[in-house]
Design a protein around this nucleic acid. Sequence first.
DNA 1: GTCTATAATGTGATAGAC
DNA 2: GTCTATCACATTATAGAC
Lengths: 213, 213
Amino acid sequence: MAATSGAGRPEKRKAITRAATAVFGREGYVRASMDAIAAEAGVSKRTVYNHFADKETLFLSVALESSGELTEKIRDLVDRHLGKIVDLRQDLTDFAVDRARAVLSAGDHGALGRAIRAEVANIPADVLEAWLEAGPVASLRDLAERFEALAGRGLLVVDDPALAAEQFTLLTFHGVAERSFWGAVPVPDEEVGRIAALGVDAFLKIYGAPAAG
Amino acid sequence: MAATSGAGRPEKRKAITRAATAVFGREGYVRASMDAIAAEAGVSKRTVYNHFADKETLFLSVALESSGELTEKIRDLVDRHLGKIVDLRQDLTDFAVDRARAVLSAGDHGALGRAIRAEVANIPADVLEAWLEAGPVASLRDLAERFEALAGRGLLVVDDPALAAEQFTLLTFHGVAERSFWGAVPVPDEEVGRIAALGVDAFLKIYGAPAAG
DNA sequence: GTCTATAATGTGATAGAC
DNA sequence: GTCTATCACATTATAGAC
C-alpha cells in the first residue's frame, strides 16, 4: 500500500492504471516503457512516479487489480448462465463461450493476463499467489460452488466439485486459450462455439446425470 | 535458410544454438542479450552475427529447432508407453506423467516454449505456423494415430481420434502446464502424478471401452 | 574486441495550475 | 500550498557495425 499510493488526484491515478493496463497488455512488461504509459495516460512521467514507486510496483498493482475485475466479470457470467437452468447443455455451452470471450477478447483484461504469464518467473512468490487467489483460483471456486448446487438438484453427478470445475474449464476453455495464445491470436467465434460444445459434450459424459441422457 | 546460415564451423553453430536456447529460455526474448548468448556459447559476438543475421533470426531459428526435438522426444514416449499395452489405465497415466516432465522440466526445451508463448504477438504468422506444425500439432497427431490404433483393437471407443488426443492432452497435461506456468514454477512430482491419474480417469469415462469397465 | 547510436529507468529543478 | 507539467540529466544497457 504505502509503496503504491501517495499524494495526487484519484482521477490521475485511474488514468495511469488504465494506461498501464493497456500498454503492459500490448507490449508486455519489458517492452512497455514508462514514457509510453505516461503518454497514454496523458500525464507526465513525473506524475506516474509520484503515484507508483517504480515500474515493477505499477505492473504488479494493475495486475492484481485487473485480476479481481476479471473474476467479478466471470462471476456475473456464472450467475447469469448457471443460476436458473433451462437447458443444462445449452446453458453450460453459453457460459463457456461467454467466458472465453471475456477472458480472451483483445482489448480487455486478458491481454494483461498474458503479460503476467510471460513475466511469471520474475514475479515475487507472494504477489503471484495473491494474483492467483484473486483471479483463476477464485473463478474456479465460484464455478465449483455452482456445480455443487447443480449436483444437489440432481442435474449433475459430482463427487469433487473443485475437480469438476477444473475439468470443465480444461475441456471448454483451455483449448481455446492455448490455440489463441491467451488472446494474442484471434480465434473465430464459430470455432470458439464448436470447441465449447465439444467440451460440454465430454464434460456431460463424465458428470451428466443418467436421467437426462 | 539463407538468412540463418553462413560460414563457420558447425560445432560453433551448435554451441551458439545451445547457448541461445538456454538464455532465451531463462530470460525471455527481450531480456536475453546477444552478449550473454555469445558468452555462454564461448564465442565472440561477431561469430554469432556471422551465423545468424540478427537477434530475431536466431530466436526463431532455435525455436523451430527446439520444437522439432521436443516433438521427437514425445513421440518416443508415445511409442514406449502406448506401443504395447499392458494395463491401459496405467500406461496412459505413465505416458501423461512422462510427457509433463519432458515438456515442463526446467532445463529443457520447455523453457524456450515459454519464451515463444510470451513473444507470440511479435512472431511472424508463417513462422508461428511452422512452429505449431513442428511442435504441438505434430505431437497431437502422433497421439491421435495411436488412439486410433487402440480403438481398432477395441481398447478405446473413439469417433474422432484428433479430438480424443486433444481432450486427453487437456485433461492430463494442460492442468499441470497452467499450474506450473509452463515450467516456470515447479510442481511436485506427486502432484503431477495425481493430476495425471485424475485426468486419465475422466478420459476413460469418455472414451473407455465398456468391456474393461 | 572496440565503438557508436539509441533507448531505457529513475531523478532533480523550476515554474505554473487548482 | 499542494500537485502538476516540462525539461534536462546521470546512469546503464543494448543491438549491431567497423
